[in-house]
């Protein structure tokens, strides 16, 4: 309750293993960004559980994350649709970004 004033506004977290061949390459990055932008909540990803966190709505920043196949992608979101956002991102990764 220390941060923010609103009850229930805390980070929703999840992680997923990158199993698609190219990992978080250019096209998957674009898809992830487009998906993240659909949510009102802040959405961030990282390649370690403790960050550093990258804004998932920024195509330029996501493109620079460069996570490879076999790495784990950590997600966190904060806001009214945080759970939906994190779930959608996990599903996208699990679907191999609809590429394979």
């Amino acid at each position: 309750m220390a941060d923010g004033g609103e009850i229930g506004m805390q980070d929703v977290k999840a992680h997923a293993l990158l199993t698609n061949e190219v990992g978080l390459h250019a096209r998957p990055s674009v898809k992830l960004t487009q998906l993240a932008k659909r949510f009102e909540s802040t959405v961030e990803i990282a390649i370690a559980a403790d960050g550093p966190w990258t804004d998932a709505k920024s195509p330029v920043k996501i493109m620079r994350v460069k996570a490879a196949k076999g790495e784990t992608l950590f997600m966190r979101a904060n806001g009214p649709d945080a759970e939906e956002a994190v779930r959608a991102l996990v599903e996208l990764v699990n679907r191999k970004f609809d590429e394979e």
């Binding site: 250019a26 674009v30 487009q34 932008k37 709505k57 195509p59 493109m63």
Partner: peptide
């Protein structure tokens, strides 16, 4: 072009597209 279009595809403003 790819980055600007990605930003634009989310419905962002012209300023946001340019900034990206």
């Amino acid at each position: 072009a790819v980055m600007a279009a990605t930003e634009a595809s989310g419905g962002s403003s012209l300023d946001a597209v340019r900034a990206t």
